[in-house]
Design a binder for these strands. Structure first.
Ligand SMILES: [Zn+2]
Ligand SMILES: [Zn+2]
Ligand SMILES: [Zn+2]
Ligand SMILES: [Zn+2]
Lengths: 141, 141
DNA sequence: TAGGTGTTGACAATGATTGTCATGACTGGG
DNA sequence: CCCAGTCATGACAATCATTGTCAACACCTA
């Protein structure tokens, strides 16, 4: 149950990985591989789409980034500060994301699972809505 | 905020829809469109894959079935008894599913969202583990 | 029973993700 | 500093669930 090995398959440090990491550091919303690729190309990088996909996957395995799935099924990535288990409150308009801990939920989940005889329980939880700012914009039509 | 119109686009009753519905009625696990299609063909039906997809979508829109997404991104469907909002406790080995209500979670979600100035909040939550039976099998190696 | 319309199914198209593999970029040792 | 040994990259092909198309069909009702 320990945290995964820090960097399973990230032996070397490269321009591409650095570039992606830097992008993520200046962004508090979840982004897709395609988005990041587009941004990097826009900025003049010759990075390949495949590389972006692979790098993001590696980051995810190493728990360097959090992954979330869009209703459509696409993967989105975000650099998260919290080291421990947490969930996300995402603005469905601008993408702004807040990390939230859910001790209440964790307890509830464990109890429910136990009550039904389940073991090895895990869970996925995500909150989505309109952030304060976007709520305003919408109210003002 | 009322429940969606019962049957937006399901004007007629057909053999295919009946067949799919019947399959779902005798199954308490989530199944994919492809699974259901395979089973129906197996049983001699000439139903088309496209039809299964469309029907399942329609059922989902009409809140006749619940949808869940696999880590890989595929859609799974299940006929649910509870009419109100609920979540799922799924066995990741055999797929057996239990419906659970989560008043605690609902309250928690609303509070967290409000604390951060978010409005129009919704959430997705799912529990997965090993059911009592599968836990046994695994323990017995 | 016949017509109007919702449905079907074979097939093509989509599009994000993954596989391939020759070429290029790190890094540690000499 | 230079080189070999790897690991990483990127252009391109391949997957594969899902969606789009559209002519042939099946409901249902008047
Ligand atoms: Zn949690
Ligand atoms: Zn916002
Ligand atoms: Zn359900
Ligand atoms: Zn089970």
């Amino acid at each position: 149950m320990a945290t995964k090995p820090p960097a399973e398959n990230m032996a070397r440090s490269t321009k591409q990985r650095t570039a992606i990491l830097e992008l993520l550091e200046h962004d508090d919303a979840f982004r897709s591989a395609q988005d990041l690729h587009a941004i990097l190309r826009e900025a003049g990088s010759k990075i390949g789409l495949t590389t972006v996909y692979r790098t993001l996957q590696a980051f995810a395995e190493a728990d360097i980034v959090d992954v979330m799935r869009l209703p459509g099924g696409d993967h989105l990535y975000r650099l998260c500060s919290a080291e421990e288990h947490h969930h996300h409150l995402v603005c469905r308009s601008c993408g702004r994301t807040v990390e939230v801990a859910g001790p209440t939920v964790e307890r509830w989940a464990n109890k429910v699972a136990a009550d039904h005889g389940f073991t090895e329980v895990g869970h996925t939880l995500e909150l989505h809505g309109l952030c304060a700012e976007c709520s305003q914009s919408f109210k003002a039509q």
